[in-house]
Design a protein around this nucleic acid. Structure first.
Length: 455
RNA sequence: GCGGAUAUAGUUUAGUGGUAGAAUAGGUGCUUCCCAAGCAUCAGGCGAGGGUUCGAUUCCCUCUAUCCGCACCA
């Protein structure tokens, strides 16, 4: 009974029920930022914890870190981001199409054009009388930088520019040696991290999809160069499997292998898992073969020895397979996939089919009637006891019973417990299932155990 | 960044050059023996800043945000 859900529906529900709000909303917002509300943060934390458990604590070969967002600016020179993120662009004044100014100049025989300032490029384009493919004049060359910047230092005069990291990966690479020296892992091993990253997107769009501030969860897995193909394939499989385990439907997922010209500057092989969002199939999860690009670059820049030595003499720079996923995008995918409408007793209802493991509220407890003191008292007791056993228990005694069910449906609560008059007689309650709206009778003594089993 | 559209309560919306109604959601009380029932009652709004005007939510300009295309997405 699933209808095609629109992004608007998801945004509206997210706000109404306290999942996600527009950033700085009372000031009119700030493009590219969204805030997580009380339910949203629970959902997010549940996903993070699930990921961390699956890929870090349940595995002997992966180590977690949490690196600073601000990194020595030289990091970004070595990683290629200072160069790769600073594109000088020039516009066709008529069609407004943009071209890489340095590439245009190089094509016309100007050497080392990428070392020119924007002013030099602009005048050189004029001097050569370059025209766009449509035959129009070019405007001024403008520097476009995807990295967000701020200043470190007490006074403006002595302050230095620092970047807000555009990816979390470099925090791992600069700590590679520290992890080796402190934990002494043997290859292959991985380093994992969950953290924020920042990009000055030209057009933040599509709710949580394209953000200026976002959260990544990623693993850099260090291997012997001979193992790159095998490891790459293995990580592709485990990425897919994990997304499915969160409840994402496989029919809405597909692989997209990057052609050579769409790969990042560091990647040899790259593939994305795309998800069918309301605005089309778009990237959700990436698996990249970063080769030895990053470690090599940092080794050259710093002179620090990042070779890995095997007993017996072989010495090499490890290759890296990266498995990286946008946390905000997962949340968007999950909300879109979980949204469902059906009918219960002829009445339409909206419900979120969240997997119980990640649902922000696991179980809600109500008294059947609010004005019968003995019911309320008993329900309170059940609620308090259940809270000790299960996390994510909510109390609700508002309106009538149907209203409460609908409310819980809309936030994806998998189970509702109702204390009624029979409870007072035989100490049993009804346990109602979100997806089927069916209920069963469970004794209070077994309740916590019963629910835990279903979770 | 370009082109087009939009902006009224938490949500969905009506409407006006004399500062706004509704539905629904929400609070409280009553009622209610399992799926948004009923009665009473309360609270809540013209995105921001300028301009024109005696007076602007309404007309004009700028900004901000959102949506749809295009471009961008290392």
């Amino acid at each position: 009974m699933k209808k095609q859900v629109t992004l608007e529906t998801i945004i509206s529900l997210s706000k109404r029920r306290g999942f996600i709000f527009q950033g700085s909303e009372i000031y009119g917002g700030l493009a590219g930022t969204w805030d997580y509300g009380p339910l949203g943060v629970e959902l997010k934390n549940n996903i993070k914890q699930n990921w961390w458990k699956t890929f870090v604590t349940d595995r002997p070969d992966i180590y977690g870190i949490d690196a600073a967002i601000f990194m020595n600016p030289k990091t970004w020179e070595a990683s290629g981001h200072v160069e790769g993120f600073n594109d000088p662009l020039v516009e066709d004044v008529k069609t407004r199409k943009r071209y890489r100014a340095d590439h245009l100049l190089e094509e016309h025989g100007v050497h080392k054009a990428d070392e020119f300032s924007v002013e030099e490029m602009t005048s050189k384009i004029k001097e050569l009388g370059l025209k766009s493919p449509e035959g129009n004049e070019f405007g001024e060359v403008k520097q476009f930088n995807m990295m967000l910047k701020t200043r470190f230092g007490a006074s403006e005069a002595t302050a230095i520019d620092v970047y807000l990291r555009p990816e979390t990966a470099q925090g791992i690479f600069v700590n590679y040696k520290n992890v080796i020296d402190s934990l002494h892992p043997k290859l292959p091993f991985g380093i994992a991290q969950i953290g924020k990253a920042f990009r000055n997107e030209i057009t933040p769009r599509d709710f949580l999809f394209r953000l200026r501030e976002f959260e990544q969860m990623e693993i850099q897995y260090f291997i012997h160069p001979d193992d790159q193909k095998e490891s790459y394939e293995k990580w592709k499989k485990s990425a897919w499997k994990w997304l499915v385990s969160l409840g994402l439907p496989e029919e809405k997922m597909q692989w997209h292998d990057h052609a050579e010209n769409e790969r990042a500057h560091y990647a040899a092989d790259a593939a994305d898992i795309q998800f069918k969002f309301p605005f089309g199939f778009k990237e959700l999860h990436g698996v990249h073969n970063r080769t030895d690009f990053d470690l090599k670059a940092h080794m050259e820049k710093t002179g620090v020895d990042l070779y890995y030595s095997v007993e017996g003499g072989e010495k090499f720079i490890p290759y890296v397979i990266e498995s990286s996923v946008g946390l905000d995008r997962i949340i968007l995918a999950i909300l879109c996939a979980a949204y469902a409408e059906d009918e219960v007793n002829g009445e339409e209802r909206v419900f979120l089919q969240l997997s119980p493991e990640i649902a922000p509220v696991k179980v809600a407890v109500f008294p059947l009637l609010k004005n019968k003191e003995e019911l309320v008292e008993k329900a309170r007791e059940v609620y308090e006891n259940l809270r000790k056993e299960v996390s994510g228990v909510m109390w609700d005694d508002n309106g009538n019973i149907g209203k409460r069910y609908r409310r819980q449906d809309e936030i994806g609560t998998p189970f509702c417990v109702t204390v009624d008059f029979d409870t007072l007689e035989d100490n049993s309650v009804t346990l109602r299932d979100r997806d089927s709206a069916k209920q069963e009778r469970v004794s209070v003594g077994d309740l916590a155990h019963h629910i835990k089993e279903k979770l």
